[in-house]
């Protein structure tokens, strides 16, 4: 057995073109079971396209994707896969309750024309509790905030009790407290032994969870190895020059621009506004 067969998900020499324009070129990547990997890179570097190719939403023009050792074309055990698409909202044209959206994630394990079994209900409720929205299950998703809707989408993926998660920018446009809840949720998944492929522009509170970082630039893998800090991903040799500045990097010891001043204005670390 090669490492490609052992991997939870693997892509070899994968290329994707959108409208004739190459977006991914010769990607080789294998994710071992239980790994938490972060796909990083600037906008337009192809990280979302890579995830979409891995779950079969984008056809490959060359190369091969294998899920749990099975080529994607023959793969049909979708209950092992949980996908959180990049979406601004979980709502559609008709009201839907949080419970109903999360229950849709259970379809991978339900047969046609059967009502929800007790196990289905337990899994849906468990998924809602993991993301901390069990008390809002009867509310319409459109009444939730953006961060809460993102958590609904994660709960939907959780409800199918998958082993391999693909999360496409779950923290985009989500405020810091909600990002923290997301981080706690993903930490729980990780402790349950799930394999996670996370697409993120910036990791923020998710940083401590990452085992391995993969940085894409112009559709190629330019870095694959130990986790990077957000700051390092934007080094000139990875992506476009570092054009924006961070005011503070939460959770990390970083020398601030404020010189050290004694009392009375000294404050505990982390509140240095």
């Amino acid at each position: 057995m090669t490492t490609l067969d052992m991997a939870a998900v693997a892509i070899s020499n994968g290329s994707v073109a959108l409208g004739g324009r190459p977006v991914l070129r010769g990607i080789d990547l294998a994710v071992a079971p239980g790994d938490f990997i972060a796909l990083m890179g600037a906008n337009g570097s192809g990280k979302s396209t890579l995830v979409r190719a891995l779950v079969g939403l984008r056809p490959l023009v060359a190369g091969e994707v294998r899920l749990f050792g099975t080529p994607l074309e023959q793969y049909d055990d979708w209950s092992r896969i949980g996908y959180v698409p990049q979406r601004a909202t979980a709502a559609a044209g008709v009201p839907a309750s949080v419970w109903e959206v999360v229950a849709a994630g259970r379809l991978t394990r339900r047969r046609l024309l059967r009502p929800l079994s007790r196990a289905d209900r337990a899994a849906i409720l468990d998924a809602l509790e993991v993301v901390g929205l069990a008390d809002r299950r009867r509310d319409a998703v459109s009444n939730l905030s953006g961060g809460q809707q993102q958590r609904v989408l994660i709960a939907r993926a959780l409800a199918g009790e998958p082993e391999l998660f693909f999360l496409d920018e779950p923290t985009a446009g989500v405020d810091l407290p909600n990002q923290q809840v997301l981080a706690d949720t993903l930490a729980q998944l990780k402790s349950r032994g799930a394999t996670v492929v996370l697409v993120a522009h910036e990791l923020g509170p998710l940083a401590p969870l990452v085992d391995r970082a993969v940085v894409l630039r112009d559709g190629r893998v330019v870095y694959d190895g130990a986790p990077l800090r957000d700051h390092e991903v934007h080094q000139p040799w990875f992506a476009e020059p570092h054009t924006h500045h961070h005011h503070h990097d939460a959770g990390t010891k970083q020398t601030d621009h404020v010189p050290h001043v004694g009392s009375p204005i000294d404050r505990p670390r982390g509140q240095n506004r």
Partner: peptide, 8 residues
């Protein structure tokens, strides 16, 4: 959500 449904 068509994309989610396809992956499901």
């Amino acid at each position: 959500d068509q994309e989610f449904a396809r992956v499901a």
